[in-house]
Amino acid sequence: MPSDRDILVSVRNLSFSRGNRVIFDGVDMDFRRGKVTAIMGPSGTGKTTLLRLIGGQLRPTRGTAHVDGVNVHALSLSELYELRKRMGMLFQSGALLTDLDVYENVAFPLREHTRLPESMIRILVLMKLEAVGLRGARDLMPSELSGGMARRAALARAIVLDPMMVMYDEPFTGQDPISMGVLVKLIRELNDALGLTSIVVSHDVHETAAIADYIYLISNGKVVGQGVPDELMKSSSPWVRQFMEGQPDGPVHFHFPAADYGRDLLGNGA
């Protein structure tokens, strides 16, 4: 499988269930080096779960996930930790450590994994903060940051060890247009400037389509559409159409499954 040098992450026949609920059912995806690949789909389809599967936090019931030629779930715990040092992850809430200020948060991976002297750490942290535009905010505590700023700080932290890839979990959700614009710019620019491979999980069609090189559309645990943004926009598949255009009803039903309306209103035995 890991023969194609172009592909950094590949997922094959991935299946995952939580209890009785099937979240993924045989999903195949390739993520090319140096590109921004997006995973989109309606809420609740387990897009975040996919990132956790790739990162090794969850085990699939079937199938494999390979990162840089290595089967993630065949690794020992220490090998997995080594791999994770080369992966950056941006959580939806940022997941900054609340008892450390911004500077210390960004410095955290350096302090934990390297023996670099303070002066070096300072330079690296300031560089990464500058890249996300938060160098002046380095003494603030996470509680003093707006949502967008918290995500930017978390982004700086995610790239501080110069990883080979970054995973973004719903980076645009709940952001005002300006913050969204900032994040969009950052994701694309960092990807190109640092030669990263980015995996963006999102359901914001416009923003994601603007920066993605390739998109996978997931619904009901399967890939229902994939392609470059332009292709997808012109696709004739009903799933893709409904999602890309934001139609309230279609393959994803408006009504949650329920009993007959008339009977429900008039009561039982009516």
């Binding site: 936090q57 080594e82 994770r84 992850m89 939806q92 997941a95 450590l97 609340t98």
Partner: peptide, 15 residues
């Protein structure tokens, strides 16, 4: 810390 994904975040940072 668990609810705000800080523990999860640390795991992903290989800590």
């Amino acid at each position: 810390m668990k609810a705000t994904e800080q523990l999860s975040g640390m795991e992903m940072m290989a800590v």
